[in-house]
Amino acid sequence: MSTTTSTEHRKDPELGSPVSAAPSSSKRLLSIDALRGFDMLLIAGGGTFLVLLEGKTGIGAIDWMANQLTHPAWNGFTFYDFIFPLFLFIAGVSLTFSLNKGKSMGLPNSTLYRKTFIRMLILILLGIVYKNSPIPFFEPSQIRLGSVLGRIGLATFVATLFYLNMDFYKRLASGLVILLLYYAALYLIPVPGYGAGDLSFEGNLVGWFDRTFLPGRLLQGTYDELGILTQIPSLCLTLFGTLAGEILGKAWLDKRKGQYLAIAGVAGIALGLLWSLHFPINKHLWTSSFILLTTGMAFLFLLVFYWIIDVWHIRKWAFFFQVIGLNSLTIYFAYSFIDFGYTSRKLFSGLYAPLPEDWYPVFQAFGAFLLVWVFLYLLYRLKIFVKV
């Protein structure tokens, strides 16, 4: 989705108008592309070589980073837990610019609804293909319906409905109410055989709901973290992302935009940590505390990228990520359907052959990582950008 730097408003310059008018500039916010690229690189597996470095260098910082690129078994939080929520948030940021552009072209809301609805269906289908390849056509019970792409599509569609019909504060309030209702549901609705308020792996409401209503294969066997109920809190990340997008789109001084983003970031982290004292931070259940924590972090990451790239205009370092961010769907599928590891081994194994054998996977993964980027760079030079 295209991004721009500023908008003029139909009603007033504050945060009260449901929809902003046409952007006054076609200049793209490079920070959003760079942040998306940084995030997508880790979603697609670009940090694999860092994980493989654990225990090999004797450097504590590297081992710490490797541990941060794995998910906790249940409760708890690592940086890797932040990666997918950040993408959902960025989808909301980009959505505001895309919808504003559509409105500036005179498109009615019904057309915008239809476009995002069709996009949602396409992403759901692509997600099923990605998660199930090769697809077990003759064993439908083994097809997993939950997917990263499907969640992005659904969250973006719902956020479109909210954005085109609610102003900034109503969307903020709606997101908080959704998180409160989800919190109440997990604590108050009894699960057969376990009762109410059981947040264990076996007894949580999310798992029971998936086992009861979600057909096909469940990732964790007894539930699926990309299943039905967790769609509800996760869409709040995209909804909150539209708030950040609206802030960036205002015709304000950068200092004021930065203040709003910073306040939102600190508030989200503080509220998430406070809530976690009773409602644990858990990425598998997408708990409300987890949503607020990652939303706050996303606001701050967006602020840092925006300030460095689009305010200070320090951009050379960001080009690496921008190449990825402009073809995020491509890298997601490329890592799954193209064996870059095989090509890396064929091209580079002679270079690291003298090293200890336990280092081979590290260099093979790093070579694959470089090949993926070169592939995306060629697409960038050819101006080929795959989008839905």
Rank of each mutant, 00 (worst) to 15 (best):
I62Q: 08
Y342E: 12
S288N: 03
P134D: 05
V311Q: 04
N165S: 14
S26I: 08
E54M: 01
A196T: 07
G241T: 11
Y306W: 15
I152V: 15
T78H: 14
F301G: 00
K283N: 11
S20V: 05
L126I: 04
S24C: 02
L239I: 14
P18Q: 09
A61S: 13
L326C: 02
Y169P: 01
L154G: 00
T222S: 11
E8L: 12
H284Y: 12
I263G: 00
L273R: 09
H313D: 12
A368K: 10
L229S: 03
V51Q: 13
F201R: 13
L274V: 14
K115M: 05
S24P: 00
I189S: 07
L179F: 04
L15V: 09
S104T: 09
S328F: 12
L161K: 03
R151Y: 00
A185S: 13
G60Y: 12
I124F: 11
L29C: 05
F320S: 10
I152L: 14
D39H: 01
G76V: 10
G45S: 10
E8S: 13
N132K: 02
H278I: 13
D210Y: 07
K383Q: 13
G16T: 14
G175V: 04
L214N: 11
A251N: 15
L121K: 03
R315Q: 15
S6D: 08
G106H: 11
L253Q: 13
R28L: 02
V374S: 10
T70Q: 14
G207P: 05
D198Q: 07
F138M: 12
F299N: 07
T295Q: 07
V311M: 05
I90S: 05
F369R: 01
D81K: 06
V158F: 15
F385Q: 04
L50A: 11
S94F: 01
T330Q: 11
K11M: 11
G258Q: 08
L112N: 02
T212N: 07
V386Q: 09
F299Q: 03
F201N: 05
I263Q: 02
K27R: 15
H71S: 09
L293I: 11
I269M: 14
A353G: 05
I90H: 04
L271C: 14
A185T: 04
V311K: 04
Y377P: 00
Q322K: 12
W275H: 09
D210A: 08
